[in-house]
Amino acid sequence: MTESESPFSIERLAHSPDALKVFIALLLLLCLLGVLQFWTQRKKGDSVLLVGACGAGKTTLFLQLRDGTVHQGTVASMVENVDAVQLPAEKSGKKCSVRMVDVPGHPRVRSRFEQYADRACGIIFVVDAVDFLPHKTEIAEQLYEVLTNAAVFKRRLPLLLACNKADQGARAHTVDFLRRRLEREVEALRGTRDTLGGEAGGQRGSFALARPGQAFSFDAQARGGGPRVSAGALSALTGDVTSVTEFVRACAGT
């Protein structure tokens, strides 16, 4: 032991047996932790991701689901919010707990989504139903990126188009309208995106969202083995979020 000339003066450690013991104990603990983590990671996804454009109301929805109130309001997020969310008990069943991840919508930090996608069991794509038309292209681009993400596409994660701000009455577009417009926009993107290799955001598995020559629709791509997309209206501000809680329950249950 004394002969071993390691850079980190092991002989000094050897002289104080206490420190050595502590060191070994620490090492063991570390191994144990590693194994535990490995195990938990092998399990299938346990988190629901909130994604969407800046200002769509993701953080508001996150707070609403977690605390049942939006407190003082929100500003643009810089980092993701991650927390366990307890959904209120259903009439029949038990409480349902799920890990909720609120990914910031700013284009510069949007790509953080990818590192949470592996653990996801469902995705809530929040759309601002009031301020939709001026930003429809960017929203569709983001949706396209989510849908063609390798982790999402391969595992056919369920996706909810959450049309937020339904509390604004007639100013909010209907769920049907948003769905159709997004289908059209994604269709338009499909034509151009396929030609862009070496994507700016780095490598990304490119998946055909529908067969060539076929118009894109959420149903068609679900039939073709893509993510299953459903849609629902909600209002994160007033707390009318039943469509989301149902979706989350379905994700966590399956």
Partner: peptide, 13 residues
């Protein structure tokens, strides 16, 4: 004046 978390939740204004 406002205080908020990096996650975007306002704490005090």
């Amino acid at each position: 004046v406002c205080i908020f978390t990096k996650g975007g939740a306002l704490l005090w204004t």
